[in-house]
Each structure stands twice: as structure tokens, then as C-alpha cells.
Design a protein around this nucleic acid. Structure first.
Lengths: 197, 197
DNA sequence: GACGAAGAGACAGTCACTGACAATAGGTGT
DNA sequence: ACACCTATTGTCAGTGACTGTCTCTTCGTC
């Protein structure tokens, strides 16, 4: 019964989150998730390529928003400025989504398999940022480096905001990018200690 | 027959690499790897927690070397300087291991499941670097940020060296850390565009 | 009211991974 | 030489994630 397709998908996601919270990720089977959602195990795997993905959705939209944010940055912005601008453009989205992401995070935090998947999701976002920077004329290699560094700062800010939401994500972002600048600005000895022969 | 234990392990790793190169990762079963190594499938899983791990070994030693490198950095070094010093301390190791890592990389590059595992391995290294920085007195949050940024630069350098080994990894490292400094040194507008209400 | 496409169920099968128990090779002490 | 102990492996049975295939039902369309 193709009731709506999207309906079953939403029920599956809800059931998955509930069960993961109740018994943990490893202890719940795909069949159980499907049963609670009122469909067959086979249907579960038609909606999600694997069990983990039931917890990660809407990442495509977020990735697009980030990339758009980079492209929408002011003309003369440096790579890092463009990235910060992109992060600021999704600030509100993240803050508003907190009630949804918070319980999810709790499950992820205690499940190695899910933490691993988070890393590939983050890598996907980093790739998107890198490609967007390229479209702004940044050399590909440098774009990837900038995207990774920017993403590290963004993750840092998000982590800090998660534990201390008071100041708002924006304040943590500002702080993270300031810390970033302070970290690399110290003029040090960049030359190898031992000259190569 | 407990021939030696470590022997079977080495044969399994060799067989895994060979088969992954011949037919690809997804198309080879754990039983096939075990068969080529002259043991049972059950023995394979006694040596490796999962199929992917047969390709990733010696990461523990590498992680320890990196952490030691951070701790061995000169007294007054900044976090980034300590990280660079750590990377320099494993330069030779990486250069010497190229014949081993190169075929491995080729398999990993075309296998999403293995790329995902690389990310968690890298995250493990980043954690170790972060903890080492903490032992140098760096505040934990900042240590994690520094470790991630440093690891991004290291990965950038390694990537560049992979395609252009000529100048040596050390030269690429120097260049990466210089680019890093240039990236974040540009003094920009770090304040939010719209004041928070 | 026929019809085509999109979901969904039913069913069988592969493969990664695990627990439990038995068998054997190697080294050790006497 | 002999009993003994332990590490390592083989064997077997089982669970659960995922896939291919086929059929069936429902919904929008003509």
C-alpha cells in the first residue's frame, strides 16, 4: 500500500530513534524498527541503505545550505571569511533544530558505529564546502585545507555551544574563529630541524 | 596448530590485501581470505574484529609515535609548533613505508567502507594528539581544535606528497603549515552580521 | 472503469560476525 | 621420556544485516 511513501519513512525514523534510545543501537534489529513502524523489514531497507542511515536524514539539505552560504559570501572575502559566513547562515537552523538533534546525539555518543558514520557525514559536508570554495576561485588543494580547518572550528563551536547554549552558537563561532587565528598566528620555526640530504 | 599466532595474522593480512586488489573489497569474503591464508574463517575473526581491520594494522604504534612526538617538542613550543614537531618526527617512517601504503591506498580509494574506516583511524590519531597537547598544559577544548587543525594540515601535506614525492614529505609539511598560517592570518570581520536580540 | 507506476509484502539467499566446545601443537618441569 | 599446561585453531550452530526477485495492492490518470 503506497500510502504516501514519505509517511512510512518518517515512521521508520521515529521508531528507530525510540528503539535506539530504549535498548541501544546494537540491541535493536532492523526487523524490530520496521515492526514498530508497521512495515516489513524489507521496506526499511528500501527507505534506508543501512541501519545507521535511519538516524541521519536531511543532511543533503544542510550540505546544500552550507555550500550556498559559501557562494553567497561577499565578493572579496578570504576563504576563511567565506566559510565563517556560511556557518553563520546556518546558525539559526542549528539552534532551532536542537530539540531534534539533542536526543540523537545522546544515542550517537554511546555507539561507535554511529560515531563512525558521523565522521563520513562531516567529511561530506567538508567536501561540499571545499567544492564551493573552488567555485569562488580558490585552488582545489588549498580549498580542501581551508574547508577542513573551517569545519574543525565549526565543530569546535558546535561542541562548545552544546554544553553551554547560553551565549548562542554565534558567540561560540566567533570565539572559535578567533582561537583559530591565535593558534596559527604565532610565528614559529617552520623549517625542518635537520636539513634533508 | 598454534604455529606461531603472529604468523597466521601476517598471512591473513597479506591474503586480504591480495584479494582486495584482485577482486575488490566487497567481492571478497572473509572465508576466501582465510582460505588463502590457510586457516578457517573463524580464525580470521579471532585476529581481526572485522573484515576492514585486516587492512589497517600498526596504527597503534603510529599513534604512540605521534603522541611521543608532541611530548618531545621543545619546552616553550606553541601547540601548533608541538604538532609540527610531532609530524616531523614520523616523516621518515612514512616515507619509508610508502611501498606498503601505496597499494593499500589504491584499494581504500575505491571502497567507501574502507574510506569510512580511515576517517575513524584519523580521528583516533587526532584524539591522541589532543591528549598529548593536554599533557603539555593546553586547555582540552583548545587542544582538540589544535589537533584537528594540525591533522588537517598533515593530511594535506601527505596528500600532496603522495602525488608529488619529489620534494619530500618534509617540504610539503613546511608548505602546509605556511598555507595554514596564511589562511587564518588574514584579519577579517569576525563579528556576526546581525546583532543578536 | 481500465491501466501504468509506485510502494509494499513474501520469500529465499548470502555474508559478516559470535558463542561454545573439542582437538592439537608447543613449550615446561620433572 | 612423560605428563601437563596453555595458546591457538577447527568445528558447528546461530543471529542479524542486507539483497534479488516476484507478486500484489493502491493511487492517480486517461
Amino acid at each position: 500500500m503506497p500510502r504516501s511513501g514519505a509517511d512510512a519513512r518518517r515512521r521508520l525514523q521515529q521508531a528507530a530513534l525510540e528503539l535506539f534510545r530504549e535498548r541501544g543501537y546494537e540491541a535493536t534489529t532492523a526487523a524490530e524498527i520496521a515492526a514498530r513502524a508497521g512495515v516489513t523489514e524489507r521496506t526499511f531497507f528500501r527507505h534506508f541503505p543501512d541501519k545507521r542511515e535511519a538516524l541521519f536524514d536531511g543532511e543533503d539539505a544542510f550540505r546544500a545550505a552550507l555550500a550556498d552560504g559559501v557562494l553567497a559570501a561577499p565578493e572579496g572575502a578570504t576563504p576563511m571569511e567565506a566559510l565563517l559566513s556560511a556557518f553563520r547562515s546556518v546558525e539559526r537552523t542549528i539552534e532551532n533544530n536542537r530539540p531534534i538533534t539533542e536526543p540523537r546525539q545522546a544515542v550517537i555518543a554511546r555507539t561507535p558505529a554511529l560515531r563512525e558514520r558521523v565522521l563520513t557525514k562531516t567529511a561530506g559536508l567538508t567536501d561540499a564546502l571545499s567544492r564551493a570554495l573552488c567555485r569562488r576561485g580558490v585552488e582545489p588543494g588549498l580549498a580542501m585545507l581551508a574547508a577542513q580547518v573551517g569545519m574543525a572550528a565549526f565543530a569546535h563551536a558546535t561542541r562548545a555551544w552544546f554544553y553551554a547554549p547560553g551565549p548562542g552558537l554565534g558567540a561560540h563561532l566567533t570565539r572559535a574563529f578567533t582561537e583559530l587565528r591565535d593558534l596559527s598566528s604565532a610565528r614559529g620555526d617552520l623549517e625542518p630541524r635537520v636539513p634533508r640530504g
